[in-house]
Amino acid sequence: MHGNTPITGLKPKDYKTGIKPVWCPGCGDFSVLSAVTKALAHLALPHQNVAMISGIGCSSRLPAYTSVYGFHGVHGRALALASGLKAARPDLTVLVAGGDGDGFSIGGNHFLHACRRNMDMTYIVMDNEVYGMTKGQASPTTAPDWTQSKLTPHGPGVPQFIPAAIALVSGATFIARGFTGNPNGLTKLLVEAIEHPGFSFVQALSPCPTYRPEHKAWKKQVRPVEEEATSDPIIAAQRIQTDDGMSTGVLYQTTVPVWQPEQGISADTGQLEEVFFV
């Protein structure tokens, strides 16, 4: 294992900007920041060749805290912005960060199509089952009987969105689940996700100490997936649908061609104009 590690003088801290996060103390997102910077240091990726794209929400603050290129865009559109960047600049390592509301509710459509498009990028969703920046409303991953939001006093009453299952049927080629209580395990998943050619999706269970204090129990509920990652979508579907969403590790990985536009020059503008001549 040691021999595989690139020789580098870069430390995780070198990938932090030093801007003080606004996250609540105890927030799982700190561990994601730690895992992301560890992964970048491990891969020894030059700062200028990495872009971290996000939307809006607690977790979407991540780009400001990492010292790579970043874009803190609008709510729900991180994957779209990242897809445009990757299409225009295939040489960059593109990471996308966001939360469950940003990614699965307002950005749900982009999630489907980013999975389907299979561009070579990594999407990290910090799933805390709640909207943290707008006062703790239910998100798509909130349990139907969670009654703590004034907006849904009887609970959202609708089944939870299962991110891994949606990713699978939408065509994602790498699906993993991590837990912020195990940042080094999460780092490993992120490294694998970044190295995976194609769209890699990492759901990071990230407790919200403010709105979901009961998430402290997650620590006892999470466990490593029992089986090796499968490349069979039927097996993956069965595993994903039958577990309780607390198993961590790579859930599915397969290799299919990555979508990337062709880029080569075969004509100049003048030649394009020739077709218009009468």
């Binding site: 294992m1 105890g26 209580g181 395990g185 490993k188 402290k216």
Partner: peptide, 19 residues
């Protein structure tokens, strides 16, 4: 690699329990 350290804890031992 970070995940191959021989810690007896999930993270390195003196980083604390965030919760």
């Amino acid at each position: 690699p970070p995940w191959d350290f021989k810690w007896t804890t999930p993270e390195s031992p003196e980083t604390g329990d965030m919760e």
